[in-house]
Amino acid sequence: MAAIKDSFIYLSGEIISKSVPFLLLPYLSRKLGVEGYGELSYYQTFLSLFVIFIGLSQDGAVARYFYVYGKRSLNLVVNTGYAYALCMGSLILIICWVVKSEIIAYIVLTAIFQVFLSVQLSIRQCQKQAISYTIIQLSSSFIAAVMTVAMLEIYQTQLVEKRFLALLFANSIVVTSAYILYNRKNKGRIYSIRSYKTAFLYFMAFGLPMLLHHGSMFIKGQLDRIFIYHQFSQVELGLYAMGVQISAILSVAILAINKALVPYLFEKLKEGVIKLKDLHTYTLYSLIAVPIPSLVALVIPETVFTWILGGEFIGVKYYVILFLFSTSLTIPYLFLVNYLFYHGKTKQISFCSVLSTGIYLAVLSGLIFTEISYIPWASIIGALGILLVLIFITRRV
């Protein structure tokens, strides 16, 4: 019953918080236009890239520390990770200052606070504080939406830059409040330099192998937009990126359920109630559900999409259908990768990701010089490739 209750809270919070940006889509699509939306999507790839190097999987390191070692010295790991993020972010900001790139500097600051926010959410998830988790999530989403509308209504130029400023403002407020509340409950203990060194080594041992994993995910999820930005027009990129964004609605629901169930899955694995053969069975059954979202989008008329987004977005339905299919492949993927996360097999996860990324890049490099309508198939083939590799790898754990 507790798992069902928490799942409902997580799912409700995730859907509401993520629905706010989606509700903003008609506003952003009309305010920025298809070309401006393509530019926004291009710079969002930099945000994702900075989060990888600045964060170094801090949320995952905190979660694993909690499940394996408990919460006694959790604050030590949290503060060590925050210190690393500030140092790494400062180095990138210096580069931004040298090259005089103001918008990239805003993106770097946004990435730092996004990393801090993900850690605070991870702490609440580990401690099964579903309500606190949801409040933090909703606050960040609503403040970002309000600030976005305010920025875009006040200013008439450099609107993409103003969108990132709104995200920065929202994340900084929520993270500061969440950290104060967290630190109030965990302050009082003083750690030695040796303890911080140990925490840093743990943090690096977990995070560095995950660079390959998250780097591979970045390549498969973001790199195509950089190529499209330079190979095709911003209008074509805008349609492509909007298809990705709409299909992300499904991703939100999948990841919300996953976040709610992971603590209970780990407990069942620890108790031996669920075994690897059960996860393989769940993986096979989940393949039946993969094409369903795409079939639903197929029967929706194109006019519905243009009515919501604006007349400039004719043709976005095609991309929505394909990206819904590739997103649905996340379901069987999560069954397998969570098993590896439980056993701390970050090297195996990274190996799988790198191998599937190689498949994706091979397909993408062939399609990028054809037509933009063929490029989504690279994501589908890459997703299918990692499933086959994960099935093989999990059998060896």
Score class of each variant (00 low, 15 high):
142 F>A: 13
225 R>E: 11
7 S>Y: 06
133 Y>E: 12
123 I>R: 09
233 S>C: 12
185 K>R: 15
177 S>C: 14
109 L>A: 12
238 G>E: 05
242 M>Q: 02
389 V>H: 02
309 L>V: 08
54 I>H: 03
279 L>E: 09
51 V>L: 06
197 K>T: 13
58 Q>R: 07
81 G>Y: 12
58 Q>H: 14
296 V>W: 05
220 K>M: 14
209 P>E: 09
81 G>W: 04
294 S>V: 06
197 K>S: 11
329 L>R: 01
205 A>H: 10
135 I>W: 04
5 K>H: 14
225 R>W: 08
90 S>V: 15
158 Q>S: 04
32 L>E: 04
26 P>S: 11
22 F>V: 13
180 I>E: 07
209 P>H: 03
185 K>P: 11
338 N>Y: 14
8 F>N: 07
155 Y>N: 10
349 I>Y: 02
151 M>I: 09
191 Y>E: 12
96 C>A: 13
244 V>T: 10
178 A>D: 13
122 S>L: 09
14 E>S: 15
75 N>L: 11
87 C>W: 14
7 S>V: 07
283 T>P: 06
289 A>D: 06
303 T>A: 06
85 A>I: 05
125 Q>E: 08
253 A>H: 00
352 C>H: 06
73 S>L: 11
308 I>P: 01
232 F>L: 04
204 M>T: 13
304 V>R: 00
266 F>T: 14
50 F>W: 02
182 Y>R: 05
43 Y>G: 00
315 G>L: 03
371 E>P: 00
169 F>H: 05
243 G>N: 03
48 S>G: 06
33 G>A: 04
302 E>W: 01
174 V>D: 10
1 M>P: 10
342 Y>W: 09
36 G>T: 04
178 A>K: 01
340 L>R: 09
134 T>C: 06
155 Y>C: 10
84 Y>A: 07
239 L>F: 03
131 I>S: 09
129 Q>K: 15
17 S>L: 08
196 Y>G: 09
319 Y>T: 04
62 V>P: 00
291 P>A: 05
223 L>S: 11
392 F>N: 11
10 Y>W: 15
339 Y>N: 08
344 G>V: 10
259 K>I: 09
110 T>D: 05
252 V>Q: 03
229 Y>S: 11
169 F>L: 15
372 I>E: 08
151 M>E: 13
321 I>H: 01
86 L>Y: 07
308 I>E: 06
265 L>F: 15
340 L>T: 08
86 L>R: 03
